[in-house]
Design a protein around this nucleic acid. Structure first.
Lengths: 233, 233
DNA sequence: TTGACATGGTGTTAGATATACACTAAATGT
DNA sequence: ACATTTAGTGTATATCTAACACCATGTCAA
């Protein structure tokens, strides 16, 4: 079976930059390519867009198929259309970025796809195609976005400590933050719910656990509240 | 001549939201469709991506062909891929937005494309395809972007008064701003160069003209300066 | 020529927000 | 019990934001 058109058409793919956070490190999920071109190189999960699925659906399907990921935060990033970005033929790729709670998904991903691995951002290997460029764009976007939308919580377990939250922001923004000022600010927002439980890890004082109250956040947002953590520079 | 592929492929287009600013109004450039579908309806300028041109190049070519526009500020907006967004067949569109100095381009556009017209954002007619959705996305993006990047100047003549600048920001953000605070802030940035000339328009005191000093802005940016006008809300 | 009109241009103050900074608390392991 | 490690807390200062009113300079018409 084949399909014929009057004019030549670029092929259309989606590629996903999947971020996770663990042990104080921001990580990205990569797939080892089993086929040419770039056989053996690491690449972003992705694949061709089917003619009967939306772009978002294609991205979600690829995440499921290649990494065993479901129900993750997913947002379109940018479309990459350099003429020579794929050596085979003209391929335009719509890139997405996803945020996953590593605590929940690490196990699954390991079993579903033996050729998938998490890499700390500081130790990403040489990537196939223009994927290094896409990854760079995604990191920039994430940095910009965490400041004014509470998406950081998508990278943490459902229950987390304020220190975890602070370390996440420090990793994403590439800065260090003042503990007292950070706590004062995030608690002042009013959408962090202290739980009854605490977390004991290591030989030191246990930490209060919180969860992100998204209903409360939505309510605040509708009333004109605007999230903003750490202004630029 | 025809082109055959093993799997069906969506067609790929670019569409451009072209913004202009005039008489205190933010405007958008639309094209009246001469062919089915949506014959006679207004639509965003755009067209098919050729297999040997980048996405940016396709957007620039369409702006040139359909609206006589050259050398304008152009940035990718978002890619729209709903399955039924075009009644003919599956078409994915990479949307761009452009900012043009109406003072310079209004005349050209009028002659180059008889079926092109500027509409104030408040009087946009019913649009073809999902173009109303694309336009809405572009307006949101513009609103967000003017706050933290000095792109407003792309919509003004090379020499402008502070009142013009303020009215532009008021139109884009949909608010009113305090004149003294606004002037204090933009002048404090240090990239507005007062010119020797003034502008006399109407029977009142003439206004000082300024130009945007982009070299100075770039220098400041490299030193860690970060433009920010009117924080959210 | 004078006065009405229209827009241009200018500073200060009070309140809110951001920043800098150091010690005690509670658990564990030796 | 003490050494170690991370959790948790308040205040003072500097900076930024927001609110606010009047005079200046031109044109036009009476």
């Amino acid at each position: 079976m084949s399909y014929t058109y009057q004019y030549p058409r670029p092929a259309l793919t989606v590629d996903c930059v999947v971020f996770g956070f663990d042990e104080g490190d921001l990580k990205v999920l990569l797939i080892e390519r089993g086929l040419q071109p770039f056989k053996g190189r690491w690449a972003l999960p992705g694949g061709f867009v089917r003619v009967d699925e939306t772009l978002d659906a294609a991205a979600r399907r690829e995440l499921q198929e290649e990494a065993g990921l479901k129900n993750v935060f997913l947002e379109q990033l940018y479309s990459f259309g350099d003429v020579d970005r794929d050596p085979r033929e003209r391929i335009v790729s719509v890139a997405y970025y996803a945020l996953v709670k590593l605590s929940e998904h690490a196990a699954k991903a390991a079993t579903d796809a033996a050729n998938a691995r998490w890499f700390p951002l500081s130790r990403v290997p040489k990537l196939a195609f223009d994927h290094a460029h896409i990854l760079g764009t995604a990191v920039e976007r994430l940095k910009g976005k965490v400041r004014y939308q509470p998406i950081g919580f998508e990278l943490l377990p459902p229950r987390f400590t304020l220190s975890q939250l602070q370390h996440l922001y420090e990793a994403v923004l590439g800065t260090t933050l003042d503990k007292r000022n950070f706590r004062k600010k995030v608690l002042s927002f009013g959408f962090l719910l202290p739980l009854k439980e605490t977390q004991m890890l290591g030989r030191h004082r246990p930490a209060q656990l919180f969860r992100f109250d998204s209903e409360k956040y939505e309510k605040l947002k509708r009333r004109g509240f605007h999230f903003e953590l750490e202004r630029h520079k």
